Amino acid sequence: MAKRAKLTKGQARRIKANQEKKIRNKADKHQWQDDELGEAQHGVVISRFGQHADVEGEDGLSYRCNLRRSIKSLVCGDKVLWRQGKETEHSIAGVIEAVHDRSSVLSRPDVYDGVKPIAANISQILIVSSVLPAFNGDIIDRYLVAAEQTGITPVIVLNKVDLLDDSNQAAIEAQLQIYRDIGYQVMYASNKTEQGIGELKEQLKNHTSIFVGQSGVGKSTLTNSLMPGLELITREVSENSGLGQHTTTVARLFHFDHGGDLIDSPGIREFGLWHLTPQEVCHGFIEFSEFLGGCKFRDCKHIKDPGCALIAAAEQKKIHPDRFTSFQRILASISENKLTSRFND
């Protein structure tokens, strides 16, 4: 029997789109009539599941809702207008009619869906890194670029500080000092010793925040420490790979008793920025601003170009060489991903 030919990525994408269309049509089979629904009310999306979403109503309770076909994008944190059904139909309690304008949205690129929103109406991003998996400044830089692009205030959190010792503390502190010198806030935390947990609670007050960072840095464990009794599922870092294992599969919004909200988002090992232009990445490195426009050539790529103001600034230590190297790696990854996506279509 001959082997079935392997599907191309384009074919697989089209099959996936057709399957999702069938699911959507099935979900919309029950068409709510006006006389079956109550008055319109405001709510906030606390989680999204395929063609359904859990909405927190004005009474503080959660209702699973269908989405009107006119709604093109809906993510955790969205503020919506919805109507409750007079009767629950197959566990569906109502329908979302409209989405209010977002004050902010955090997005990441997706191979199939283009730019994919992760969460909305966030006021601060807590970029969680840790001692284990190994501290990675490049990933922090990617999140900082994303935060600067959206105008959401970033805060860097070093987690698992109980694992700091003579073999790693000096190097990690030197890296963190780079961010302090630029003007970013750096915080420390440990779930094991509870160091910094009180300070984090104060930082989260009166904000809608999101924890971001590679898998295994302890985002869900931190959430458990900040919200005792929540008991999100957590897993240890893989002993074989040294990488984190994904634990959160769906973004969800939680309320703090002392004030503020937290969106717990799925962990990702790499945060791509290939949907951004090189100019947008430049502006995401805030310490570059005084040198931009000073290059000899208008189309300077900031790689090996003669007369590059950024290269000169890095050589003169006016900008930190590690940050400039990270910036160049991001530019290279953008070019590589865009080239790969063209060949895979």
Rank of each mutant, 00 (worst) to 15 (best):
H275G: 06
D257Y: 03
L273H: 07
G196M: 11
C282Q: 06
F288V: 12
F254L: 10
Q245E: 14
R252M: 02
S265G: 15
E199D: 11
L230P: 13
E239N: 08
K205F: 00
A189F: 01
W274M: 15
F256Y: 06
L253P: 01
V237K: 01
K201C: 14
L273W: 08
P278F: 02
I268F: 02
D257T: 11
F254Y: 15
T208D: 13
G229V: 15
T248S: 09
S220H: 12
V237W: 00
F288I: 11
H258G: 12
L292K: 04
T249Q: 09
G229H: 05
E236D: 10
L222A: 08
W274N: 12
S209M: 10
V217H: 02
G294F: 02
G229S: 06
E290F: 01
E270Y: 02
R235L: 07
G216A: 10
T223S: 12
N224A: 10
V237L: 00
E290P: 15
T248Y: 04
E287W: 01
L292N: 07
L222R: 06
G244V: 13
F288T: 03
E236F: 02
C282T: 04
L230R: 12
G272V: 14
F288K: 07
S209N: 10
H258Y: 09
G242T: 05
I268T: 08
N240C: 10
G284F: 01
G229K: 05
S241R: 08
S190H: 08
G213E: 02
A251V: 11
V281H: 00
P228A: 00
T247M: 01
S215N: 05
M227E: 04
T208H: 05
Q203F: 03
K192G: 02
G267W: 07
S238I: 15
Q203H: 04
T208E: 08
S225W: 04
D261S: 14
E290H: 05
F288H: 05
G242R: 05
G260H: 04
I233L: 15
T234I: 14
G267H: 04
L222M: 08
G213W: 01
I286K: 10
L262E: 06
V250W: 03
L232H: 05
S265I: 15
S190G: 10
E199W: 03
G198M: 06
S238A: 13
L222P: 14
E287S: 00
N206S: 07
E236Y: 03
F254M: 11
G229E: 07
G229I: 11
A251G: 09
